[in-house]
């Protein structure tokens, strides 16, 4: 029991990253109804960009993160414009296949460009653990939680008070009504996709200073993000925060008390179980067209 606070703290660190990835996914998936299987690779790409910025270009932490956000927003714009937009017009279900293709494509591009060896970003923060009561955390881990908290706060403010946020909420309530009342659905879609991509990349960048970045790392991440979104209910920001932190804590406890070998297998089994038992989400409503 002595280790419990430490496990909980580890869980909050991991959970913070899940929250960020899941927020990006819930915006894109829950509101725009675009199923992006490559969202995990967006996370990995963010990690590589952080490595690039901090190691190769020698940027300090903040400029490196800005680099990640800007690049990922641009990348998200390109993907939305040139892949999802042309497909979505004809047959939205084909987006599933195309984004699966994108996920495969990106994984193998990472493999070719960066190689199979895991990489780590340099945070530039002082080394060594910091003691908080009975809990020890490195400064990178504390920074992850702090950065996630700031990002989530900014996002909540943006969603509450800006036109993007208002339009988004209108869109998630009823797309047709939103369109009739003069909301530029195209513009909202693009901006949402860019925000979602940036969030995934930011999360990957933050985690890259603690956990290794590797080409295939996105698969597990996207699964967990989907789980969080499903548990939270599509498009629910607050739900994603709670569910993301919850999943992180549960995982940290499993790892702490049962060992880490089975963690990934158990993670995937949870994915299957959650979706099989409650495919429309734990808080979602089941709707059937009559």
């Amino acid at each position: 029991m002595a280790l419990l606070p430490q496990f909980l703290a580890n869980g909050v660190v991991i959970g913070s990253s899940y929250v960020l990835v899941a927020l990006g996914l819930t915006l894109i998936f829950g509101i725009l109804k675009i199923v992006n299987f490559a969202h995990g690779e967006f996370y990995v790409l963010g990690g590589y960009l952080a490595v690039l910025g901090s190691q190769l270009l020698g940027f300090p932490p903040l400029p490196a993160l800005v680099l990640v956000i800007v690049c990922m927003a641009a990348f998200g714009w390109g993907v939305e414009r040139f892949i999802f937009l042309p497909i979505g017009k004809h047959d939205p279900t084909n987006v599933i296949i195309a984004s699966f293709g994108l996920s495969i494509l990106l994984q193998n591009v990472f493999l070719k460009v960066a190689g199979p060896e895991p990489m780590i970003a340099k945070s530039g923060l002082p080394a060594g653990a910091i003691r908080l009561g009975s809990v020890f955390l490195t400064s990178e881990r504390i920074a992850i939680v702090a950065a996630a908290a700031v990002t989530v706060t900014v996002l909540l403010v943006v969603l509450r008070f800006t036109w993007v946020g208002l339009s988004l909420r209108a869109l998630s309530e009823n797309a047709t009504v939103a369109r009739i009342s003069g909301i530029n659905v195209r513009r909202v879609a693009v901006v949402t996709f860019m925000i979602g991509s940036s969030l995934a990349g930011l999360s990957g960048a933050l985690m890259s200073s603690v956990f290794m970045v590797q080409p295939g790392g996105g698969v597990l991440v996207v699964m967990k993000a989907f789980i969080v979104v499903v548990m939270a209910g599509m498009g629910s920001i607050e739900g994603a925060i709670v569910a993301g932190l919850g999943l992180g804590v549960v995982e940290a406890l499993v790892t702490g008390y049962l060992g880490s070998e089975m963690r990934d297998i158990i993670g995937f089994l949870i994915v299957i179980a959650v979706l099989a038992v409650r495919p429309q989400g734990l808080f979602g409503l089941k709707t059937e067209r009559s």
Binding site: I87, N94, A98, G101, S103
Partner: peptide, 13 residues
């Protein structure tokens, strides 16, 4: 695999 991934996207579009 890069080629296959790109091809998959291209064919779908």
């Amino acid at each position: 695999h890069i080629f296959f991934g790109a091809l998959l996207i291209a064919v779908i579009i």
